[in-house]
């Protein structure tokens, strides 16, 4: 398997040493179990993306304001009335 630290980097979180030991052991068990699927012949089978056989339903293209800008910003740490705020990137 890939180095666990590479996967952490992709997922944008890091594990503590204790978490890493636990997760490494659990992942080994999962992989062993997943390998049981290798021998099953699935040639000619289409992957099933959704259990209902239809594509997404689109609504009429008419503008609606179901949630306001204030609503959206209220869940973040922003104090700005217009944008999500983060620490400065360029100094």
């Amino acid at each position: 398997m890939e180095d666990l630290r590479v996967l952490e980097e992709i997922e944008k979180f890091s594990l503590t040493d204790e978490e890493r030991v636990t997760i490494e052991a659990m992942i080994e068990r999962y992989y062993e179990s997943f390998n049981e699927l290798d021998g099953i012949d699935t040639s000619g089978i289409e992957p099933l993306v959704s259990v209902i056989s239809q594509s997404n339903i689109m609504r009429e293209d008419i503008a609606k304001h179901t949630v306001t800008r204030d609503d959206i910003l209220s869940g973040s740490h922003s104090e700005s009335v217009e944008y999500f705020e983060i620490p400065g990137i360029l100094r």
Binding site: D38, P47, L48, V49
Partner: peptide, 11 residues
């Protein structure tokens, strides 16, 4: 893994 699982889901 992922594609095989989606095929098996259909089966």
């Amino acid at each position: 893994y992922y594609e095989q699982a989606m095929k098996l889901r259909r089966m």
